[in-house]
Structures are given as C-alpha cells and as structure tokens.
C-alpha cells in the first residue's frame, strides 16, 4: 500500500528524519512508535504532503504520491482543530467536500456514522457546545467519512474514556477487516498490543526497529512461562527443584498463585507440566511474551546507552 523510501528531513540545523524507510502492507494496522520528538509527526506530515521531504520518496500503490492521492487518505492529526462556530454537519460537509465528496454523499454518510456512534442529535450542534471527547469523536468521523483506503491516526485515543477507546479500537479492527490500511501513531502500548499487526520504532530521527508485532515479541522473548495454580506454594517450589527457576510470584488469593519461571538446561514446557501435575491444581500455563511497552522501552534505553557511550 505505502512505501517510504529513504526519507530525510531537516528543519535548518535540526534533523527530523534521517534516511527512514519502511513498507506498510495493505489491510494491516501499522503502529508508528517512538518517544516524543522522534520524528513521527514529521513523517506523517510527509505522507500527507503537508511537508515535503528533503530527500526520498513516498509511494502509494506503487505510484509516487501526488496531490490527487490525498483523497485516498484520511488523516487525524494529533493536535485537533475544529471551527468552533460551525456545526457538526457543516464541518463534515467542509472536510468531506475537500476530500472529493458531494454534499449529498457527505450528508448520507454522516447519518450512518452518527447512528453507529449513537450521536444523531449532535448533528446540528456547534463544536463549541461539545465536550473535548465529543469533539474528538466528531473529528474521527470527519476523518473516515470519505471512506479512505489509508487511514493515518496520530494519537487517536488521547482524550477518550475507556468505553470510547474500546469503541474506536473496534472500529479500527472493523476497517482493517474491510481491507483498509491504518497507520496508528500512539503512545498507548496497550492498543498497540491489541490491534497492531506491524510496528516501526523511530528514535532520534532514525528508524531503529520494525516488523510484525508477533515476530518482535518472539525475538524479544526471554523464555519465561507463567503458571496460575491452586495449592501449596512449598509443594510447588519443591517440585520445581533444580530444573526450573522461579522469577516472580504473585498471590491471587488463599492458596492461589501466579508464578513466572524460566527453564533451566534442556527443560521445556512439557517437562514443566510433567513435574507439576499431581503437586498442584493448574489453572493456566502460558509463555510470557514481552509487551510492546517492554520492547519499546528496552530499545529506546539501549539506543540511549549506545549514544551516551559513543
């Protein structure tokens, strides 16, 4: 869907992006991650042709990105702006028409979205009459109104309550299932874990990591397993003996525990289960995969350390 080839951008002496390349396949949710000031917003603006790169190119469906391709893109910037004196409908018509829709189409699509979010009575309200969260919802609707093939959302969940976060996440997954491509720039790592298929991590204007979420987690995993059980802790520890190393323990209730452990030697999950069976009542066992939060923090910290050492 989108190819970013060797993009560089400087604002006078400050380098915002340094030879960044990535490919974003169709029908996936792509997480664009990075600390504040890493260059994410600059990259997003370049994809939207708001800013021009000093070097490199952006291709959409194999073609060099041009002004007419913008109708394929829906963009929700991090710092949202709406005309406070305009009504929700007027806003939708303005932005919809700028994206190539006819007024009639905007009106009918707006009805569908307002119904979907159960906010039909907001249509004639002025933006200044809405709360911040309500305005965020309106902005989300305006972004997706023209049915874009590529959706770029910069911190779309900030300002939403958990119910609305869930609502937006479900909508994004639904759009993905329709074949749309979504670029999600966020600091909400829980959402990245939940809905992103692929991520790229930008740090200090360079891309330092990218790949499928599952692959990244697989490569970063530490061989930890979690066991949730009922029974005697001493019996559990005795059973582990020298074949396994307990890393962490959490008391869930009376004789109920969640324990994290690592294998020693050639032991594997099968050996662990054989060891524990009959000693305790196992409720659940799973391999602990690192969260995107862990991967993000580790990568950024390791890069910072390298930079400091240099």
């Amino acid at each position: 869907m989108l190819e970013i080839e060797n993009i560089s951008k400087s604002f006078f002496r400050k380098v915002a992006l340094d030879h960044v390349s990535m490919t974003i396949p169709s029908g996936e949710i792509f997480g664009l991650l990075g600390p504040n000031g890493a260059g994410k917003t600059t990259l997003i603006r370049i994809i939207n042709r708001i800013t021009e790169p000093d070097h490199g190119a952006v291709k959409i469906n194999g073609e060099l990105l041009r002004q007419h391709h913008l109708s394929l893109i829906g963009y929700l910037p991090e710092e949202r702006g709406l005309y406070r004196s305009m009504t929700v409908e007027e806003h939708a018509i303005l932005l919809g028409r700028l994206r190539g829709l006819e007024k009639r189409e905007v009106k009918s699509k707006l009805e569908i979205w307002l119904e979907k979010f159960e906010i039909q009575d907001w249509k004639s309200k002025r933006i200044e009459q809405l709360s911040k969260g309500m305005a965020q919802k309106v902005q989300f609707i305006c972004t997706v109104l023209h049915d874009p093939k590529l959706l770029i959302l910069d911190e779309p969940l900030s300002g939403f309550d958990p119910v609305n976060v869930d609502l937006i996440n479900r909508e994004l997954l639904s759009m993905k299932s329709e074949g749309k491509t979504i670029i999600l720039s966020t600091h909400n790592m829980k959402s990245v874990d939940e809905i992103c298929d692929r991520v790229a991590l930008i740090h200090q204007s360079k891309k330092i990591l990218d790949g499928k979420v599952t692959d990244l987690q697989e490569s970063a995993k530490t061989g930890e397993y979690a066991v949730k059980f009922q029974g005697n802790m001493i019996a559990f520890v005795n059973a582990l003996w020298t074949g396994f190393e307990m890393v962490d323990k959490e008391v869930l209730g009376a004789d109920r525990y969640l324990v994290k452990l690592k294998m020693r030697g050639e032991n594997n999950l099968e050996d662990l289960l054989k060891t524990l069976l009959g000693q305790i009542k196992i409720e659940a066992v799973w391999e602990v995969l690192p969260s995107m939060q862990d991967i993000f923090v580790n990568e950024v910290q390791s890069k910072n350390t390298v930079i400091h050492e240099e």
């Binding site: 913008l70 963009y75 702006g81 700028l98």
Partner: peptide, 16 residues
C-alpha cells in the same frame, strides 16, 4: 486562529 487552533493541519491534509 487556524494556526493556533491547529485547524490548518487538518485542512492542509486535503488542500495545498
């Protein structure tokens, strides 16, 4: 106003 309220960025995503 458009600059300070960041509406400009929304518009610039559709209009040069």
């Amino acid at each position: 106003y458009e600059k300070s309220t960041r509406i400009a960025e929304v518009l610039l995503a559709s209009v040069d």
